[in-house]
Design a protein around this nucleic acid. Structure first.
Lengths: 123, 123
DNA sequence: ACGCATTCGATGCACAAGCAAATAATGCGT
DNA sequence: ACGCATTATTTGCTTGTGCATCGAATGCGT
């Protein structure tokens, strides 16, 4: 793969990312009061059985720094969508857990999310 | 394409974008004092013949808001890498033009940029 | 020629993100 | 048991971004 092609696919990736992200941000924001990263976090937690996640684990999943995730969790917590639980075995750690309200909000937002992705990623 | 696949490719796109962007940011920043968007703007202007771009035009190219681009241009201008020129025909408008220093900086950063993309986008 | 909607770019403001330092808890070596 | 490096998270600070707004310039309709 030569330089020209590499740059071409990078720009295409950037374009696809930008437009999709932007539409998601608007739709999720207006209809459900969620940012894209908020939704991504809720989405991970709604998928999981136990629903317990460590902060760093979530940060890796959604590609944010751990400090960004700490504040994101604080916002979600203030909104009642998530709660922090002390971790018995290691009291440095925190378990972040989705609440009933969080599950509800996620369920409401899911169709919007899927619809935008479907429209955006199939050109 | 079903929901599951769509979400899968979206997450893959997010991952690829995040890691590539992050490495680019670090490498371009440390070695050349440029952010990724800075480079993208210089890259567009270095490509072009005339080298004259309108602010909104650049904003569209690099997927930033017009206000973000206005400030980005201000930073590049302060660094001496681009300059703003009054636009004769329409005195609301501004032509952004790359300087000699800008062309030099771009030339120096280009190999780094291509190398990172090559490594990152070929897995 | 005049008014008015429109367009271009800059700026005030609020906010999310990263980095580095602070805080707190662990556990390993001795 | 004690000190010290390490790990997990939070917080202070700075910066870049978007949105809304502003000011200036344009041009269209009358």
């Amino acid at each position: 793969m030569n330089d020209h092609d590499v740059v071409g696919s990078w720009r295409e990736l950037l374009a696809r990312h930008a437009t999709t992200w932007c539409v998601l941000e608007r739709e999720l924001g207006e209809k459900h009061g969620l940012g894209v990263s908020d939704f991504e976090v809720l989405d991970r937690m709604a998928e999981s059985e136990h629903g317990k996640y460590r902060v760093q684990e979530l940060a890796d999943e959604v590609h944010l720094s751990q400090s960004a995730l700490s504040r994101l969790v604080s916002r979600l917590e203030k909104a009642g969508l998530v709660c922090r639980n002390m971790c018995q075995e290691d009291r440095r750690g925190v378990f972040v857990q989705i609440t009933e309200a969080g599950i509800d909000r996620h369920r409401q937002a899911l169709p919007t999310h899927r619809a935008v992705l479907g429209a955006s990623l199939n050109d």
